[in-house]
C-alpha cells in the first residue's frame, strides 16, 4: 500500500503538509496523490471511529450479524440479490462469504424488535432468500483493528539512556 494511504488509514486527520514531512515528498505531490485516490475511488470516505458505549444519552442501538442463504440467479449470480439487501439503510455491512451460508449481513436498529422486524419483513421475504440465522451482538471488543478500550498509560520510565 502507498505510504500516503497507510498514514491516512491510521489517522485521517494528518494534513498533507505533515504527510509530506513524514515521507520526504513535496506537499503538492502529496496533495495531488490524495486527490487522485479520492477521484478514482481508492479513498472512499474519511470517518471517525467512535466507541458507542461511551456515548451518554445516545439513542440505544443494537447490532445483529445475519447469516443469509440465497439462491443465486442466472447471469447476475449473487450480485442482484446482494444489491437488494445492501440497499436497505438498516444494513451497515454486507459480505459474500464461502461456507455454510452465502451473505453475511450486519444490521443495525434501535432495539431487538426493529431488527427482528427488519429480518422478518424485509430480508426473509425476498424471493431469493432461502433462510436466515440472526446473531445479536452482545459486546464489541475490537472493530476494524481498533481495540475498543481506552489506551493504557505509557508504562515506560519518563527518561532513560
Amino acid at each position: 500500500m502507498d505510504e500516503i494511504l497507510e498514514i491516512l488509514s491510521n489517522n485521517a486527520r494528518v494534513t498533507p503538509a505533515e504527510i509530506a514531512k513524514m515521507t520526504g515528498k513535496s506537499e503538492s505531490s502529496v496533495k495531488s496523490a490524495i486527490k487522485k485516490y479520492e477521484n478514482n475511488g481508492t479513498i472512499l470516505a474519511y470517518k471517525t471511529v467512535i466507541d458507542q458505549d461511551q456515548l451518554k444519552g445516545a439513542r440505544p442501538c443494537v447490532r445483529a450479524l445475519i447469516e443469509v442463504s440465497v439462491s443465486p440467479q442466472k447471469k447476475v449470480g449473487f450480485e442482484a440479490v446482494a444489491e437488494r439487501i445492501y440497499s436497505f439503510p438498516e444494513v451497515v455491512s454486507c459480505y459474500l462469504v464461502s461456507g455454510a451460508y452465502d451473505l453475511l449481513v450486519v444490521v443495525e436498529g434501535e432495539n431487538l424488535q426493529t431488527v427482528s422486524n427488519f429480518v422478518a419483513t424485509k430480508l426473509s421475504s425476498l424471493d431469493q432468500v432461502r433462510g436466515t440465522a440472526t446473531h445479536f451482538l452482545l459486546k464489541k471488543y475490537k472493530e476494524d483493528g481498533h481495540i475498543l478500550k481506552k489506551k493504557d498509560d505509557d508504562k515506560r520510565l519518563n527518561i532513560s539512556y
Binding site: 505509557d154 515506560r156 520510565l157 519518563n158 527518561i159 532513560s160 539512556y161
Partner: peptide, 16 residues
C-alpha cells in the same frame, strides 16, 4: 523528570 507528572517525554531510550 522521573518525579514529574504530565511530562511529554522525548527522553526515553526504548520503543514506545
Amino acid at each position: 523528570v522521573l518525579g514529574m507528572k504530565d511530562v511529554i517525554s522525548l527522553g526515553v531510550g526504548e520503543p514506545d
